[in-house]
Amino acid sequence: MTRITVNVDGTKYSDEVEPRTLLVQYLRESLGKTGTVIGCDTSNCGACTVHLDGTSVKSCNMLAVQADGHEVTTIEGLAKNGELHPLQTAFHECHALQCGYCTPGMIMQSCDLLKNNPDPSEQEIREGLEGNLCRCTGYQNIVKAVQQAARQGKESGQQSGQGDADGNPVDLNEAEQTVGATS
C-alpha cells in the first residue's frame, strides 16, 4: 500500500491505496465519486475524464498513486454553490445527452477545450472531443452545447470552462422560452 494525498473537488483526502489502483477506481470506490464512470479498458471512450491540476485526463488511464500531491476535479465538483457550470446548463439546454453515460466525461473535456480555446470553430470543437465516445446523440447537440457555452462565455465577458463556475448561470425559463419560440 502507498499513502497518497489528493485534493478532490476541493476536499483533501489522505489514503492508503494499492499502487495498481486506477485513479477512477479510487474516485469511485474510496471517495464515492461515482459520477465519474468507466466505459472501456483501452482509454478510447473518455467517459472517465476528470481534471488533474486543471487539465483533462482519462482517470482510467492513470494510477491513483500518480495523482499524489495533485488536485482533481470531477463532474461532481463542477457546480459551485448550487449553481450549475455553464457547460452543464448548455448540455441540458441543447439536449446534448440522452442516456447520459458519456456526459460527465464529455462535459469535463468540453471544459478543457474552452479553457484552451474560448472561441472554437465547429471543427475545433469536434476535434477537441475526439477522445470521448457517445453512442446516443450523434454528437450534433454536444457540439451545439459547447458552442452555446462558448458564446455565453464571450457575452458575459468571462471565459467559461475555467474549471470553476464563474460563468453566469443561464436562466432556464428564459432560455426555454427563447428556444420554444423558434421551434
Binding site: P19, R20, L22, D41, T42, S43, C60, N61, M62, L63, V65, Q66
Partner: peptide
C-alpha cells in the same frame, strides 16, 4: 512508467504484469 498512456491499457488487460513499476513522473 512514463506518461502511461500505452502502458496502462496493457496492464489493465493484463497483457503484461510487471512486479515493479518505476514511475518517472
Amino acid at each position: 512508467l512514463a506518461g502511461g498512456q500505452s502502458l496502462l491499457p496493457i496492464l489493465r488487460m493484463r497483457l503484461n504484469a510487471p512486479g515493479v513499476v518505476i514511475d518517472l513522473g
